[in-house]
């Protein structure tokens, strides 16, 4: 358990946005009372163990020109889900793809988030997804308004 507490302590610091300065990891090192090399090593270690997925720039899709976005939910035969999931994941405009729990009155089980630059681009991308694999039904849940997009912080 001591390792877990230690992981959380490191995460509680390195989860913060990186400062746009020449040596951005210095702040983290100071907060953890250590040096930059140790911080970099700790991040790499957390990545190797799959606890940190990545360190990366997070782009705001609507500001980057992706104004037509949707969650698309497909109803796929259980045996075909992995095939559908992998094919959808290979598309660059699909950023997220999951298999989710279906309900009798909401039969969709494969969900993607997709992003397009305009109405034509959107229609083409939806059509391209529908060509990839067999499905029984589909619901295109176009984004209307973003009420919140934030970054969860552990304490």
């Amino acid at each position: 358990m001591s390792e877990r507490i230690n992981d959380r302590k490191v995460l509680s610091v390195v989860q913060k946005p990186l400062e746009l300065v020449s040596e951005p990891f210095v702040t983290f090192a100071e907060k953890l009372n250590t040096d930059v090399e140790t911080v970099l090593h700790a991040i790499k270690d957390l990545m190797e163990r799959g606890i940190i997925r990545r360190i990366a720039g997070i782009v705001k899709h609507n500001k980057a020109g992706f104004t037509h976005n949707a969650m698309v939910a497909f109803e796929v035969e259980d045996a075909c889900c992995d095939d559908a999931g992998m094919k959808l994941s290979s598309l660059p405009f699909v950023t997220h793809c999951y298999k989710r729990k279906p309900y009798h009155d909401w039969p969709y089980n494969i969900y993607v988030m997709m992003h397009a630059r305009n109405a034509d681009d959107f229609d083409q991308k939806i059509a391209a997804m529908k060509e990839l694999f067999p499905f029984k039904s589909v619901s295109v849940l176009k984004s209307i308004k973003e009420y919140k997009k934030s970054h969860f912080l552990i304490s």
Partner: peptide, 25 residues
């Protein structure tokens, strides 16, 4: 750095940060 500050300022770049695999913690 100047470009990243500009892209942050106009909202294209949200942040640069670690992405945590929550179920693992």
């Amino acid at each position: 750095l100047a470009i990243l500050r500009k892209l942050t300022g106009n909202g294209v770049l949200r942040t640069i940060r670690t992405v945590i695999n929550w179920p693992k913690v």
